[in-house]
Design a protein around this nucleic acid. Structure first.
Lengths: 190, 190
DNA sequence: GTCTATATTCAGATAGAC
DNA sequence: GTCTATCTGAATATAGAC
C-alpha cells in the first residue's frame, strides 16, 4: 500500500538519523535502505528538512499533551512527578527514534522552527519545574534550586532512548520506570 | 604567536562544533570565525577529522585519569561517588565544549576510532558501576539495578555542558556540585 | 603563515519518460 | 510510484605564489 511505503520511509529515516545524525544521513542513505532511487523519496516529503520537522513536532506535541493532562489532574506534586517520568519512559520505549530528535535532532531545525521548538521546550520545562516547586513548598521535597532539580530529573532519563533503540538491550520498561521513580523521588525527597 | 593561533583555532572550532554539530560545521565556518582563508586551517590539522580526534581523546584521557585516581583512593563508595561527580562538574565547567564531544561528537569518529572510544567508555562506566555496586553491598546504597543506577547518576549531569557553554547561564560550579551530590546520594541512599 | 586558485567529490533537488 | 539523467551548490582538500 502507498501509506505503508510512506510509513516505512519515515521509520527507516528516523533510524538512520538516530545513528548517523541528521547532517550525517543523506537522502542517498535513505534510498539505499528502502532499495529505491533518491528521486522516489520526494514522493513522501518535499525536502529533507520535512522529515525532521514533521517527525519532531509530532512527538513533541504528544509529549506535551501528556504533560498537560498530568498537570491538570488531581495528584500531589510527588504523584504528578511520578506520572511525568512514567509518561517519558513509556514514550521513549515506544518511540526511541522520535525521542532521539527531541534530544539531539532539534539542533538542525531551521532558525524559525528551532526558535519555536526551544520556546515550547522551555515552557514545558517550566511546567515540570512548577510541580517540583509545589512539592518543595508542600514540604514533600527537599529545598534544592528548582531549575537545577528539574534539569537533573529530566536529564537522568535522557540515556533511555539510546538504550531502547539498541537491539542488544532489553530493559523491561515497567521495571525501569519503577526504579527511576525510586531514584528520583528519594533524590528529591526530604 | 604561532601556538596562540593554533589554540584559537581549536577553541573556535569546538565552539562551532558544539553549537552546529560536527557535520554541520564546515571548514569555511571555522575560517570565517578566524578571519582567514580555508587553506590556512590545514596548517594546524591535516584534516577536519583531526580536530575531533585530537580534542576528543585528550579530554577523554583527562576524565579517565581522574576517575582512576579516585577509585584507587581510600574512600567509602559514597565518598568515591561524590568525588566522581565533583570531577565531572569541574571538568564540565572548565571545558564545556570538550565535554560536548564526549556527549555528542563521538558519533562522528571514524569506525575504528569510534570502536576504541566506545570500548573505553564502557570500561569506565563499569568502573563507576563497581563503586555503586560496592555501596550497595556495604548497605550504604539501596539495591537498584547497578547498570540502571550508573546510567541515571551519570546522565543526571549530562545537561551541564550545555548550560555552562551558554553565556547567559552563570551557575556557581561549587554550589551545583553540592546540590547534585545531595540529589544523587539521597537518590541512591537507603 | 597567509593568500589565490582549483581539483574532486558529494549533497539536495528536479525534469521527464515509463 | 518508479526509474534515468542531470543541474546546482557546497564541502574537503591541495598546489603553488608571496
Amino acid at each position: 500500500m502507498a501509506t505503508d511505503r510512506r510509513l516505512q520511509f519515515f521509520e527507516e529515516s528516523l533510524q538512520l538519523i538516530h545513528h548517523q545524525g541528521y547532517k550525517g544521513t543523506t537522502m542517498r542513505d535513505i534510498a539505499t535502505k528502502l532499495k529505491c532511487d533518491v528521486a522516489n523519496l520526494y514522493n513522501f516529503v518535499k525536502s529533507k528538512e520535512e522529515i525532521l520537522d514533521i517527525s519532531l513536532f509530532r512527538i513533541n506535541e504528544e509529549f506535551h499533551d501528556g504533560i498537560d493532562a498530568i498537570i491538570e489532574s488531581k495528584h500531589t506534586p510527588v504523584g504528578k512527578l511520578r506520572l511525568i517520568t512514567q509518561l517519558y519512559v513509556r514514550l521513549t520505549h515506544e518511540k526511541p527514534y522520535e525521542i532521539s530528535l527531541l534530544v539531539n535532532g532539534w539542533r538542525h531545525l531551521s532558525h524559525q522552527k528551532k526558535k519555536k521548538f526551544l520556546a515550547e521546550r522551555t515552557a514545558y520545562e517550566k511546567k515540570v519545574q512548577r510541580v517540583i516547586q509545589e512539592g518543595m513548598d508542600a514540604g514533600e521535597m527537599k529545598a534544592l534550586d528548582p531549575v537545577l532539580a528539574t534539569n537533573m530529573v529530566l536529564s537522568a532519563m535522557r540515556w533511555l532512548f539510546d538504550s531502547f533503540a539498541d537491539q542488544k538491550s532489553d530493559w523491561n520498561p515497567v521495571e525501569v520506570e519503577r526504579q527511576i521513580n525510586e531514584f528520583v523521588v528519594s533524590g528529591l525527597g526530604v
